[in-house]
Amino acid sequence: MNQYHKDYTESLGANLNSVKSISKFTKNTAVIGQYAEKVVIEFLKDMVNPIKISTGTIIYDGADIDNSPQFDLIVWDANPLPPIFKIDDFGLVPRNSVIGIIEIKRTDYQKGLDHIKEIYDNRVNFLPGYMKTDSSMKPGFLGVVCISENYKIDGNNTYTKLRDDTKNSVVHLIEKNNGDYQINHKGIYELINFVIGIMKNHKKVGKEFSINLPIKQSFPAKPQNLP
């Protein structure tokens, strides 16, 4: 990575680094993690602009609507179809408009990691068909843990096991060690590279999406005996 890209990616780390200042006023990791989550989301919105990011679910023909999962961040383009019931950052996004899925958790708590694994295991149901059939495409899913409280350098922890199980499709951005917070620049690089990858996918596919709707004749057919 050249110096320009190194400086660029570290800009996110600089914003996340302010968690050290927040920790002077609160030691609640959930609160600090919430701040880190907001930093990441705002950064991602700027990075994918004019593409959009919403929370909500992904809809498609044949979906199990009784068990529609809630996604933390859906990266989408309004082509071929925009989300429906869209209010602020919430929307029901058609699958063929999805560019990528990001599950973002404030800490590496067990339930959050389990949710990331569940979405990863079922990702093919929620990603557009081109991501399943074109082997040159980058993966369309990433799990992001804002603050890892249980990370161990020897890899003896649930988070590291999850990285192995998901082929490194989960990253962490901050490590909490003895009450101190350290930025994990490798995780930041992986997050940015993921976004670059899905945006390249999108450009490669371009506007090739289309939907075929049956066209019904809305007016009477002309009688055969008329000129």
Rank of each mutant, 00 (worst) to 15 (best):
Y4V: 12
N212L: 14
D89P: 00
Y159T: 07
A221L: 06
I104A: 13
V19L: 15
F85Q: 08
N49I: 05
G56M: 08
R106I: 10
F71E: 00
D154I: 10
L191N: 05
K117I: 02
P69L: 06
K207Y: 04
S97W: 03
A221H: 02
S136A: 12
S218N: 10
I119Y: 05
D64R: 14
V144Y: 08
V124T: 14
D46W: 00
F126H: 12
G140C: 11
P223L: 13
S23C: 11
I22C: 03
P69M: 02
N178D: 14
N17E: 06
Y35E: 04
N96Y: 13
K222W: 03
L12F: 09
K38A: 08
N212D: 14
I147H: 05
F126A: 08
F71H: 01
N178G: 08
H5R: 13
V93Y: 00
F209A: 09
I84Q: 02
H115S: 11
L16F: 03
E208R: 11
S210K: 06
V39R: 03
Q182H: 15
V124R: 14
S68P: 00
G155R: 08
K6H: 06
F71N: 00
I147L: 08
F141C: 08
N2L: 08
D72V: 10
I99K: 14
Y151K: 10
G179V: 01
V205I: 14
S11N: 10
T55N: 13
N28R: 11
N2W: 01
G187N: 05
L92D: 03
T57L: 13
F90M: 03
S136Q: 14
Y35W: 11
S23R: 10
L92K: 11
A221E: 04
L127C: 00
K105P: 00
V205H: 13
D77I: 09
D165N: 15
K38T: 09
V40R: 01
I116E: 09
G140N: 11
V98D: 01
I153Y: 11
L127I: 13
P80N: 06
P94C: 06
K6Q: 11
L127D: 03
N225T: 14
T9L: 04
E10R: 13
F85K: 10
P69K: 05
V39Q: 00
P214L: 07
S68V: 06
V145K: 01
D46F: 01
K216H: 02
S11L: 12
N184M: 04
I147M: 04
G187K: 07
K105Y: 04
V144L: 14
I183L: 03
S68C: 07
E190D: 14
E190L: 06
P223S: 10
D77V: 12
M47H: 09
L226G: 07
I192M: 09
E175L: 14
G13R: 02
R123Y: 11
G206N: 07
N150K: 12
Q217D: 07
S169W: 04
S23T: 14
N184Y: 08
D114K: 15
L127A: 00
D61C: 03
M1C: 00
I183V: 15
L81V: 10
I211D: 09
N193G: 04
K176H: 11
G91P: 11
V75W: 09
H202M: 14
